[in-house]
């Protein structure tokens, strides 16, 4: 699956997107965030406050408890200050 990052999260990770293949035990968005943190120090630091990370599965904004399912693109980003 593809993960896309936006705003300061993108800057802190120094990448806008990446392809990942998480293990089967990664079920929810929250699991994915934890898995990303465990494998990468920059990600661990950038996402140490999970409440500051929002998520979208394809074109749906979802809470961290949502199962990833068959989403093709998962976006992670800070809360939006809007237009």
């Amino acid at each position: 699956m593809k993960i896309r990052y936006f705003a300061w999260l993108r800057e802190r990770l120094n990448r806008g997107e990446e392809e990942v293949t998480p293990p089967a035990e990664v079920i929810t968005v929250g699991d994915l965030i934890q898995w990303l943190r465990d494998r990468d120090e920059a990600a661990d630091l950038a996402m140490q406050k999970p409440s500051l990370i929002k998520a979208a599965l394809d074109t749906e904004i979802v809470p961290h408890s949502t199962p990833i399912g068959n989403a093709k693109v998962i976006a992670l980003f800070p809360p939006m200050p809007g237009g």
Partner: peptide, 18 residues
């Protein structure tokens, strides 16, 4: 203002900030 995915970065005399 709350649910649309736009993020603002301002350029100020002190530098840039989200």
């Amino acid at each position: 203002k709350t649910d649309a995915p736009f993020w603002k970065k301002e350029a100020t005399p002190e530098g840039e900030r989200w």
